[in-house]
Simulated scan of single mutants.
Amino acid sequence: MNCNKAKNIDLLLYLIKNGFKPQKITGKNHWFLSPFRKEKTASFKVDTDKNTWYDFGSGHGGTIIDFLQKYYSCSISEVLNKLKENTFSFHQQKIISPHTKKGDIIKVKALQNKYLIAYLKEREINLELAKEFCFEVYYTFDSNKTYYAIGFKNDLGGFELRNQFFKGCIGRKHFTTIKRDYSTVSVFESWSDFLSYLTLKNTVPEEDFIILNSTALIKKVLEIVNQYCVVKSFFDNDESGSNTLQIIKDNTELEVFDYRYYYKNHKDLNAFLINSKMANC
Rank of each mutant, 00 (worst) to 15 (best):
N202A: 09
I105T: 06
G158V: 04
D268G: 06
K277I: 14
Y182R: 10
G151E: 03
K179Y: 09
I274E: 04
V204R: 04
S143W: 11
K153A: 04
V230C: 11
V79S: 04
A110H: 14
A271S: 14
D250F: 09
N163P: 08
Y71M: 12
I95A: 12
G27S: 10
L13H: 11
I105V: 12
G19Q: 01
D181S: 11
F135A: 12
E122K: 08
T52V: 07
T41P: 02
K21Q: 09
E124P: 03
M1Q: 14
K28Q: 08
K201F: 08
I150A: 02
T176W: 00
D258T: 08
K219Y: 11
V231L: 06
Q93K: 15
Y138E: 13
F165R: 07
R180Y: 08
N202E: 15
K277D: 07
L11V: 07
Q23D: 05
K50F: 04
N126V: 00
P205W: 10
E207H: 14
K131E: 11
T41S: 14
L195S: 03
E85T: 15
T140D: 04
P35C: 09
S77G: 00
E223M: 13
K28W: 00
K82M: 15
F166W: 02
Q69F: 00
M278Q: 14
L200A: 05
N226K: 12
I125T: 02
L273Y: 03
S143Y: 14
E128I: 07
N29M: 05
N51Q: 10
E189F: 06
F32H: 04
P22Q: 00
A118P: 00
S196K: 10
K24P: 00
L161P: 04
L217Q: 13
N8K: 14
N251H: 14
K201D: 06
K45E: 07
D55E: 05
K179H: 10
F56A: 04
K101L: 15
F272K: 02
S276W: 06
L222N: 07
D268A: 08
S183L: 02
L33S: 10
S240N: 15
R162Q: 07
I95C: 11
